[in-house]
Structures are given as structure tokens and as C-alpha cells.
Amino acid sequence: MWEYTDKVNEHFMNPRNVGQVENANGVGEVGSLACGDALKLTIHVNDEDIITDAKFKTFGCASAIASSSALTEMVKGMKLEEAEKITNEDIADFLGGLPKEKMHCSVMGREALEAAIANYRGVILPMAEGEVVCECFGVTDLEISRAIQESNLRSVEEITNFTKAGGGCGKCEDRLRDLLQASVNLVAIPMQSVNKEQKMTTLQKIKKIEEVMEREKDDGDIELIDVDGDFVTVSLLGACRSCQKSETTIKQYVEKKLREQVIDTLIVEEAK
């Protein structure tokens, strides 16, 4: 069971501003049934650029409903230029915090607000133009990069918590890591912890294994035959070939070096 704050529970059980603003001049719709949460925000903005009314309809869990309710409470009576500055963190703070796995609910609130304001102004949001990275939840690279920067995200897990990207099949994990790396290079913060956990593509793995084998080989020669996941198949040539202890060589020497220098889960086997 999630640990929700009293305020989340209160806004979930008694949501404010449910429905649709009748004379709405800004509508923002984000999420979908398939994704498990969706929010339709309607606002009315007057001639002085003040949001006079805001209502929502939300499909989703307790924190999605509470985030939507909180959002409408926050923006009512606000000037547009102020409302534009609202971040997902502001929505979460209003509720006294959200469980980290639920931060994407507050992001959904911020996105709906942005969409509604853009709709009022008659502009198209740049988000829609990004390239879809996570196909399961339809999240674009622009959305992900923005979440990384705004919420100071430092791992793929955090990206998933905030944007849902990577929370489905997981195929986009490498791409998320690249985006993380790119954003981090942008702000020039050392990322040792992320580098350490970094998953390599098979191609990167093969390259690295070849480099290490080239560097470490002694008078006995060794040849890389295949890399399949964590399984590395090698063939011993030259002096090692007739060596009775080839199995020991592979396990204690080759495997040890590769584990130290490439990935610590590699399993080295001799080609039969």
C-alpha cells in the first residue's frame, strides 16, 4: 500500500473542481486509457489574463486524482504568466509530497496545464514534435530531457518515476541512459554513479571485450568467437591450446579480467 500524505488522501476522497468549465477557452488533455491515467483540464481565462475558473476530469489512481484536484486549486485566480511557472514539484509540494513512484502524476498535472494554456493562446506545444522514445507510454525525447533537467533526475529509475518512460517493455532503457548522459554533459555534473551501472549495447560490449583481450593477452593467443548476452565464447590458440589447464585459464584469468574491466556478470566459455 502506498504511503500517501493526509492531504493526498483528502483531495482524493473529496476532489475539488470536478467537471468541465462551461465557457472554457483553454482545454488541455494528456494521458490515455491505455497508459492507466489521463487528465482533461478546462480553464477560463479573462481579458486580464487571469484564470477565473478551472475544472478537471481524471482517470487514474489516488495520486492522479489528488494532483488534478490540487492543480485546479492552485491555478484558480492566478495570472497566466504565474501559472506558466508552476512545475510538477510545486504540485507535489502542495500535496505535502508524493511517493517517488507516483511523481509522474504531478508531471501529468503540469503537462495538462501547459496544454490548456497553449490551447488558450492558440499555439502548438513543442513537445508534440519530439521523437517518441518510450513506445509503451508514448513519451518523447523532449519530454524526457525536460524532466531530467527540471527535476534533476539522476537515474533511469527516476526518469521512469517521473515520466513513465521505460516502465513498460524496457526496450528504451539504453536510449534513456543516452538522454541522461546528454543532459548531464550539458550541465557538466560528474556522473560516476551512473557510469558504473551503465548497461552496454552488445556492440559496445564486443568492442570493449576485444580491447581488453588485445591488451591482456600473453604469449598464448586467444580469439573471441561470440558474445550472447553475458555469455562470451572464446577459442584458445597457440601455446594455450595444448595446455591442460585451458579451463582454468579461461575461468581464472580471462573471465576475471573481463569481469574487472567490462561487466562483472560476464561468463566466459571455451568454444567446443
Binding site: N9, M13, F59, G60, A62
Partner: peptide
């Protein structure tokens, strides 16, 4: 259809 399980469970919890 059209409602989410966690929300249902938390209302049932009440």
C-alpha cells in the same frame, strides 16, 4: 471500465 483499480480499492478501504 473507465475507472482505475487503485482508486476503487482505496474507496472500498473507506
Amino acid at each position: 471500465e473507465f475507472v482505475e483499480g487503485e482508486a476503487i480499492l482505496l474507496h472500498m478501504n473507506q
